[in-house]
Write a protein that binds this DNA or RNA. Structure first.
Lengths: 144, 144
DNA sequence: ATATTTTCGGATGTTTTTGTCCTAATTAAA
DNA sequence: TTTAATTAGGACAAAAACATCCGAAAATAT
Protein backbone atom coordinates (compact mmCIF):
# COMPACT_ATOMS: atom_id res chain seq x y z
CA UNK A 1 0.00 0.00 0.00
CA UNK A 2 1.31 3.44 -0.89
CA UNK A 3 2.00 6.08 1.73
CA UNK A 4 -0.31 9.08 1.73
CA UNK A 5 2.57 11.24 0.55
CA UNK A 6 3.05 8.90 -2.37
CA UNK A 7 -0.62 8.87 -3.31
CA UNK A 8 -0.62 12.67 -3.40
CA UNK A 9 2.51 12.61 -5.53
CA UNK A 10 1.10 10.16 -8.06
CA UNK A 11 -2.17 12.04 -8.45
CA UNK A 12 -0.38 15.38 -8.69
CA UNK A 13 1.96 14.09 -11.39
CA UNK A 14 -0.96 12.72 -13.40
CA UNK A 15 -2.72 16.06 -13.09
CA UNK A 16 0.35 18.06 -14.07
CA UNK A 17 1.02 15.77 -17.03
CA UNK A 18 -2.52 16.38 -18.29
CA UNK A 19 -2.31 20.11 -17.82
CA UNK A 20 1.12 20.69 -19.30
CA UNK A 21 0.22 19.25 -22.68
CA UNK A 22 1.11 22.49 -24.47
CA UNK A 23 3.87 23.73 -22.21
CA UNK A 24 1.63 25.50 -19.75
CA UNK A 25 2.41 25.50 -16.04
CA UNK A 26 0.25 24.84 -13.02
CA UNK A 27 0.77 26.22 -9.54
CA UNK A 28 0.37 24.41 -6.23
CA UNK A 29 -2.98 26.03 -5.51
CA UNK A 30 -4.47 24.60 -8.71
CA UNK A 31 -2.87 21.24 -8.13
CA UNK A 32 -4.02 20.97 -4.52
CA UNK A 33 -7.60 21.87 -5.35
CA UNK A 34 -7.75 19.44 -8.26
CA UNK A 35 -6.36 16.44 -6.44
CA UNK A 36 -7.73 17.13 -2.94
CA UNK A 37 -4.46 17.51 -1.09
CA UNK A 38 -3.06 19.97 1.47
CA UNK A 39 -1.62 22.82 -0.59
CA UNK A 40 1.62 23.39 1.30
CA UNK A 41 2.27 19.70 1.64
CA UNK A 42 1.95 18.85 -2.04
CA UNK A 43 4.21 21.85 -2.66
CA UNK A 44 6.95 20.26 -0.56
CA UNK A 45 6.47 16.89 -2.19
CA UNK A 46 6.78 18.34 -5.68
CA UNK A 47 9.88 20.31 -4.70
CA UNK A 48 11.49 16.99 -3.82
CA UNK A 49 10.44 15.31 -7.07
CA UNK A 50 11.61 18.35 -9.00
CA UNK A 51 15.07 18.09 -7.42
CA UNK A 52 15.19 14.46 -8.50
CA UNK A 53 14.33 15.49 -12.03
CA UNK A 54 10.90 13.91 -12.27
CA UNK A 55 9.30 17.19 -13.26
CA UNK A 56 10.17 20.82 -13.96
CA UNK A 57 9.46 23.85 -11.83
CA UNK A 58 9.67 27.56 -12.46
CA UNK A 59 9.61 30.04 -9.57
CA UNK A 60 8.29 33.55 -9.86
CA UNK A 61 5.16 35.14 -11.21
CA UNK A 62 3.30 32.94 -13.69
CA UNK A 63 5.59 30.15 -12.57
CA UNK A 64 4.55 26.67 -11.49
CA UNK A 65 5.17 23.03 -12.24
CA UNK A 66 5.15 21.27 -15.58
CA UNK A 67 6.17 18.08 -17.29
CA UNK A 68 7.99 18.01 -20.61
CA UNK A 69 7.97 15.28 -23.23
CA UNK A 70 11.00 13.48 -21.79
CA UNK A 71 9.40 13.34 -18.35
CA UNK A 72 6.10 12.16 -19.77
CA UNK A 73 7.87 8.82 -20.30
CA UNK A 74 8.20 8.29 -16.58
CA UNK A 75 5.89 5.76 -15.01
CA UNK A 76 3.90 5.62 -11.81
CA UNK A 77 6.49 3.08 -10.62
CA UNK A 78 9.23 5.71 -10.96
CA UNK A 79 7.22 8.07 -8.76
CA UNK A 80 6.45 5.39 -6.19
CA UNK A 81 10.11 4.39 -5.95
CA UNK A 82 11.21 8.02 -5.64
CA UNK A 83 8.91 8.54 -2.67
CA UNK A 84 8.37 5.20 -0.90
CA UNK A 85 11.37 3.24 -2.17
CA UNK A 86 11.19 -0.14 -3.86
CA UNK A 87 10.24 -2.19 -0.82
CA UNK A 88 6.66 -2.43 -2.01
CA UNK A 89 7.88 -4.11 -5.22
CA UNK A 90 10.65 -6.24 -3.70
CA UNK A 91 9.85 -6.70 -0.02
CA UNK A 92 8.90 -9.95 1.68
CA UNK A 93 5.23 -10.77 2.27
CA UNK A 94 5.74 -11.24 5.99
CA UNK A 95 8.50 -8.66 6.53
CA UNK A 96 11.58 -10.88 6.70
CA UNK A 97 14.80 -9.15 5.71
CA UNK A 98 16.67 -12.33 4.87
CA UNK A 99 13.90 -13.63 2.57
CA UNK A 100 15.21 -14.33 -0.94
CA UNK A 101 15.32 -16.97 -3.67
CA UNK A 102 17.86 -18.91 -1.64
CA UNK A 103 16.17 -18.51 1.73
CA UNK A 104 12.50 -18.09 0.90
CA UNK A 105 9.85 -17.31 3.51
CA UNK A 106 6.76 -19.54 3.72
CA UNK A 107 4.85 -17.62 1.04
CA UNK A 108 7.79 -16.39 -1.01
CA UNK A 109 7.09 -17.80 -4.47
CA UNK A 110 3.42 -16.94 -4.85
CA UNK A 111 3.87 -13.57 -3.21
CA UNK A 112 6.65 -12.72 -5.63
CA UNK A 113 4.35 -13.34 -8.58
CA UNK A 114 1.66 -11.07 -7.20
CA UNK A 115 4.20 -8.39 -6.34
CA UNK A 116 5.59 -8.51 -9.86
CA UNK A 117 2.11 -8.09 -11.28
CA UNK A 118 1.65 -4.97 -9.16
CA UNK A 119 5.00 -3.65 -10.35
CA UNK A 120 4.06 -4.27 -13.98
CA UNK A 121 0.90 -2.23 -13.58
CA UNK A 122 2.67 0.77 -12.10
CA UNK A 123 5.56 0.41 -14.54
CA UNK A 124 3.37 0.35 -17.62
CA UNK A 125 1.26 3.29 -16.56
CA UNK A 126 3.22 6.25 -17.92
CA UNK A 127 2.31 9.89 -17.58
CA UNK A 128 2.12 10.15 -21.39
CA UNK A 129 -0.75 7.67 -21.28
CA UNK A 130 -2.70 9.91 -18.98
CA UNK A 131 -2.26 12.84 -21.32
CA UNK A 132 -4.27 10.86 -23.87
CA UNK A 133 -7.33 10.75 -21.71
CA UNK A 134 -7.48 14.48 -21.09
CA UNK A 135 -10.96 15.90 -21.18
CA UNK A 136 -12.57 12.59 -21.95
CA UNK A 137 -13.78 12.66 -18.37
CA UNK A 138 -11.96 9.36 -17.95
CA UNK A 139 -9.75 10.72 -15.26
CA UNK A 140 -10.90 12.17 -12.01
CA UNK A 141 -8.27 12.83 -9.39
CA UNK A 142 -10.29 14.27 -6.53
CA UNK A 143 -10.59 11.83 -3.69
CA UNK A 144 -14.36 11.72 -3.36
CA UNK B 1 2.56 -3.40 2.30
CA UNK B 2 1.84 -4.53 5.82
CA UNK B 3 2.41 -2.29 8.84
CA UNK B 4 5.27 -3.28 11.11
CA UNK B 5 2.74 -4.18 13.79
CA UNK B 6 1.04 -6.51 11.33
CA UNK B 7 4.27 -8.18 10.26
CA UNK B 8 5.09 -8.90 13.89
CA UNK B 9 1.59 -10.28 14.40
CA UNK B 10 1.76 -12.60 11.40
CA UNK B 11 5.17 -13.98 12.35
CA UNK B 12 4.15 -14.39 15.98
CA UNK B 13 1.00 -16.26 15.02
CA UNK B 14 2.94 -18.59 12.74
CA UNK B 15 5.42 -19.24 15.52
CA UNK B 16 2.71 -19.86 18.12
CA UNK B 17 0.86 -22.17 15.76
CA UNK B 18 4.01 -24.25 15.29
CA UNK B 19 4.75 -24.38 18.99
CA UNK B 20 1.29 -25.18 20.26
CA UNK B 21 1.00 -28.37 18.27
CA UNK B 22 0.43 -30.47 21.39
CA UNK B 23 -1.36 -27.92 23.54
CA UNK B 24 1.74 -26.31 25.00
CA UNK B 25 1.94 -22.58 25.57
CA UNK B 26 4.60 -20.04 24.72
CA UNK B 27 5.30 -16.82 26.57
CA UNK B 28 6.10 -13.42 25.09
CA UNK B 29 9.80 -13.71 25.87
CA UNK B 30 10.07 -16.88 23.77
CA UNK B 31 7.96 -15.40 21.00
CA UNK B 32 9.88 -12.14 20.85
CA UNK B 33 13.26 -13.84 20.73
CA UNK B 34 12.12 -16.25 18.02
CA UNK B 35 10.59 -13.68 15.70
CA UNK B 36 12.92 -10.73 16.42
CA UNK B 37 10.38 -8.31 17.82
CA UNK B 38 10.26 -5.97 20.83
CA UNK B 39 9.03 -8.12 23.70
CA UNK B 40 6.56 -5.73 25.29
CA UNK B 41 5.20 -4.63 21.95
CA UNK B 42 4.40 -8.09 20.65
CA UNK B 43 2.78 -8.71 24.02
CA UNK B 44 0.40 -5.84 23.45
CA UNK B 45 -0.33 -6.94 19.90
CA UNK B 46 -1.18 -10.48 20.98
CA UNK B 47 -3.40 -9.21 23.77
CA UNK B 48 -5.44 -7.45 21.10
CA UNK B 49 -5.64 -10.49 18.85
CA UNK B 50 -6.55 -12.62 21.84
CA UNK B 51 -9.47 -10.32 22.65
CA UNK B 52 -10.66 -10.72 19.08
CA UNK B 53 -10.50 -14.47 19.46
CA UNK B 54 -7.68 -15.17 17.03
CA UNK B 55 -5.70 -17.03 19.66
CA UNK B 56 -5.91 -18.12 23.29
CA UNK B 57 -4.03 -16.74 26.25
CA UNK B 58 -3.59 -17.94 29.79
CA UNK B 59 -2.28 -15.59 32.49
CA UNK B 60 -0.33 -16.72 35.49
CA UNK B 61 2.65 -18.96 36.04
CA UNK B 62 3.30 -21.38 33.19
CA UNK B 63 0.80 -19.34 31.22
CA UNK B 64 1.30 -17.95 27.74
CA UNK B 65 -0.28 -17.92 24.31
CA UNK B 66 -1.48 -20.82 22.26
CA UNK B 67 -3.58 -21.72 19.28
CA UNK B 68 -6.12 -24.51 19.30
CA UNK B 69 -7.35 -26.58 16.39
CA UNK B 70 -10.24 -24.24 15.59
CA UNK B 71 -7.92 -21.24 15.42
CA UNK B 72 -5.42 -23.12 13.29
CA UNK B 73 -7.95 -22.70 10.49
CA UNK B 74 -7.46 -18.96 10.45
CA UNK B 75 -5.45 -17.50 7.61
CA UNK B 76 -2.82 -14.82 7.33
CA UNK B 77 -5.53 -12.71 5.70
CA UNK B 78 -7.61 -12.90 8.88
CA UNK B 79 -4.66 -11.61 10.88
CA UNK B 80 -3.88 -8.84 8.41
CA UNK B 81 -7.49 -7.68 8.41
CA UNK B 82 -7.66 -7.76 12.22
CA UNK B 83 -4.64 -5.46 12.45
CA UNK B 84 -4.44 -3.32 9.31
CA UNK B 85 -8.01 -3.58 8.08
CA UNK B 86 -9.00 -4.65 4.56
CA UNK B 87 -7.81 -1.56 2.71
CA UNK B 88 -4.77 -3.44 1.46
CA UNK B 89 -7.08 -5.96 -0.24
CA UNK B 90 -9.77 -3.53 -1.42
CA UNK B 91 -8.19 -0.10 -1.65
CA UNK B 92 -7.56 1.90 -4.82
CA UNK B 93 -4.10 1.79 -6.42
CA UNK B 94 -3.76 5.57 -6.33
CA UNK B 95 -5.68 6.27 -3.12
CA UNK B 96 -8.99 7.51 -4.51
CA UNK B 97 -11.91 7.00 -2.16
CA UNK B 98 -14.56 7.12 -4.86
CA UNK B 99 -12.83 4.51 -7.03
CA UNK B 100 -15.11 1.54 -7.75
CA UNK B 101 -16.47 -0.62 -10.55
CA UNK B 102 -18.77 2.21 -11.58
CA UNK B 103 -16.23 5.00 -11.26
CA UNK B 104 -12.88 3.33 -11.87
CA UNK B 105 -9.56 5.12 -11.47
CA UNK B 106 -7.05 5.04 -14.35
CA UNK B 107 -5.53 1.72 -13.28
CA UNK B 108 -8.56 0.17 -11.59
CA UNK B 109 -9.08 -3.06 -13.52
CA UNK B 110 -5.54 -4.38 -13.64
CA UNK B 111 -4.83 -3.26 -10.11
CA UNK B 112 -7.87 -5.13 -8.86
CA UNK B 113 -6.59 -8.37 -10.39
CA UNK B 114 -3.21 -8.02 -8.73
CA UNK B 115 -4.80 -7.09 -5.42
CA UNK B 116 -7.04 -10.16 -5.59
CA UNK B 117 -4.01 -12.35 -6.23
CA UNK B 118 -2.37 -10.97 -3.11
CA UNK B 119 -5.54 -11.61 -1.12
CA UNK B 120 -5.70 -15.18 -2.37
CA UNK B 121 -2.16 -15.84 -1.15
CA UNK B 122 -2.82 -14.55 2.34
CA UNK B 123 -6.22 -16.22 2.45
CA UNK B 124 -4.93 -19.64 1.47
CA UNK B 125 -2.02 -19.56 3.88
CA UNK B 126 -3.54 -20.95 7.07
CA UNK B 127 -1.80 -21.44 10.37
CA UNK B 128 -2.51 -25.18 10.16
CA UNK B 129 -0.33 -25.28 7.05
CA UNK B 130 2.58 -23.85 8.95
CA UNK B 131 2.25 -26.50 11.64
CA UNK B 132 3.10 -29.07 8.98
CA UNK B 133 6.48 -27.60 8.33
CA UNK B 134 7.65 -27.65 11.95
CA UNK B 135 11.22 -28.75 12.42
CA UNK B 136 11.78 -29.30 8.73
CA UNK B 137 13.82 -26.10 8.82
CA UNK B 138 11.45 -24.79 6.19
CA UNK B 139 10.34 -21.92 8.34
CA UNK B 140 12.58 -19.33 9.84
CA UNK B 141 10.88 -16.34 11.45
CA UNK B 142 13.82 -14.27 12.64
CA UNK B 143 14.27 -11.19 10.56
CA UNK B 144 17.89 -11.69 9.51
C1' DA C 1 13.08 49.60 -11.59
C1' DT C 2 9.08 48.06 -9.06
C1' DA C 3 5.35 45.34 -7.63
C1' DT C 4 3.41 40.96 -7.65
C1' DT C 5 3.21 36.19 -7.68
C1' DT C 6 5.29 32.17 -7.49
C1' DT C 7 8.66 28.31 -5.90
C1' DC C 8 12.57 27.23 -2.41
C1' DG C 9 14.40 25.95 1.99
C1' DG C 10 14.50 25.43 6.66
C1' DA C 11 12.18 25.39 10.98
C1' DT C 12 8.33 24.07 13.39
C1' DG C 13 3.99 21.80 14.70
C1' DT C 14 0.61 17.83 14.77
C1' DT C 15 -0.90 13.10 14.40
C1' DT C 16 -0.16 8.32 13.98
C1' DT C 17 2.59 4.45 14.66
C1' DT C 18 5.73 2.12 17.27
C1' DG C 19 7.52 0.94 21.61
C1' DT C 20 8.05 1.05 27.02
C1' DC C 21 6.84 1.18 31.96
C1' DC C 22 4.40 0.07 35.95
C1' DT C 23 0.95 -2.07 38.68
C1' DA C 24 -2.83 -5.33 39.08
C1' DA C 25 -4.94 -9.68 38.25
C1' DT C 26 -4.39 -14.54 37.38
C1' DT C 27 -2.65 -19.16 37.47
C1' DA C 28 -0.26 -23.25 39.01
C1' DA C 29 3.36 -25.31 41.60
C1' DA C 30 5.24 -26.10 46.02
C1' DT D 1 -1.82 -20.69 51.33
C1' DT D 2 2.16 -18.75 49.75
C1' DT D 3 5.15 -17.74 46.04
C1' DA D 4 6.78 -17.16 41.49
C1' DA D 5 5.83 -16.35 36.83
C1' DT D 6 2.93 -14.90 33.67
C1' DT D 7 -0.74 -12.02 30.96
C1' DA D 8 -3.90 -7.62 31.33
C1' DG D 9 -4.50 -2.87 31.13
C1' DG D 10 -3.66 1.83 31.21
C1' DA D 11 -0.47 5.59 31.03
C1' DC D 12 3.51 7.25 29.06
C1' DA D 13 7.54 8.00 25.58
C1' DA D 14 9.94 8.05 21.16
C1' DA D 15 10.06 7.97 16.32
C1' DA D 16 8.11 8.52 11.92
C1' DA D 17 4.74 10.39 8.90
C1' DC D 18 2.01 14.14 7.76
C1' DA D 19 1.35 19.01 7.53
C1' DT D 20 2.15 24.20 8.19
C1' DC D 21 4.66 28.65 8.63
C1' DC D 22 7.69 32.15 7.26
C1' DG D 23 11.22 34.67 5.05
C1' DA D 24 14.17 34.51 0.86
C1' DA D 25 14.93 34.08 -3.97
C1' DA D 26 13.29 34.13 -8.63
C1' DA D 27 10.60 35.42 -12.59
C1' DT D 28 7.43 38.25 -15.17
C1' DA D 29 4.28 42.08 -16.20
C1' DT D 30 3.91 46.80 -15.90
Amino acid sequence: MLSKTCEYAVRAMIYIAQQSKNGSRVNVKQIASNIDSPELFIGKILQGLSKKGLLQSLPGRYGGFYINDAEAKISLADIVIAIDGDKIFNGCGVGLDYCSEKKPCPIHDEYKKARNAVYKIYKEATLAQFRESVNKGEIRLKRV
